[in-house]
Design a protein around this nucleic acid. Structure first.
Lengths: 112, 112
DNA sequence: GACTAACTTAACCATAAGGTTAAATAAACA
DNA sequence: TGTTTATTTAACCTTATGGTTAAGTTAGTC
């Protein structure tokens, strides 16, 4: 805790249960119990996962009678995507080099 | 440990020291001590961070005399980017709705 | 062969993460 | 008012994380 937003986001994404919760929420708002249904863990465990997601700003929860409908918030995902995107240049560069290498191999067929 | 690759990747990215290490490696291969220099922590702490990055497949280490030159590996970043990308559709959709909403406001200027 | 440099491993510590069960809250319902 | 439904909070446990210092290891150098 008390970590920077990016760390909080990546940390929240570093758990398959939480990623599954986000995947479910991408299909639309739903309740805690419905979110919990697919998992074998207890409800309090899911509540905890939701708290992690909320602290990261990935989920926000409303209230409607005794239900706490959860909704996906994408802003932190956009920031995370932005961070990783910085490296795209890098991996595309490496792909280019691989292509150069393969081209070089083809132009010297007897070399191998 | 023994977690799935995506979790390992996000988990590795969920630490500012490790992200800084990756940023440094994006500029080119370098040694452990050089990687450690900017940080106030001990060398063993950096070694541990490097282990986390290696287990996530984000960094690989060679050997050259007593140095262990570290290199950035981008494959896990690409997978992580791919996962987040699934949600881009979702956040762009929400932006569209916002635009629609704003347009609707403009076409009914007296409504507010 | 001893010395130094560059790391890693081991042992330890404090705190955080992820789960549990049991008890508390909140809001509808009979 | 008492009960049920939905969810959270509290207390606890185990294991993981992130740091430390001290002791290896590995490979050049005097």
């Amino acid at each position: 805790m008390q970590s920077d937003p990016l760390s909080a986001t990546f940390s929240a994404l570093a758990d398959p249960t939480r990623r599954a919760i986000l995947a479910r929420l991408a299909q639309g708002e739903t309740t805690v119990s419905e979110l919990a249904a697919p998992f074998e863990m207890s409800l309090p465990a899911v509540t905890k996962h939701l708290k992690v997601l909320q602290r990261a700003g990935l989920v926000c929860q409303g209230r409607q009678a005794q239900w706490r409908p959860c909704r996906l918030e994408t802003a932190p995902l956009q920031e995370a995507a932005g961070w990783i995107e910085e490296y795209r240049r890098f991996w595309e560069l490496r792909l280019d080099r691989l292509e150069d290498y393969l081209r070089a191999l083809q132009s010297q067929p007897g070399k191998t």
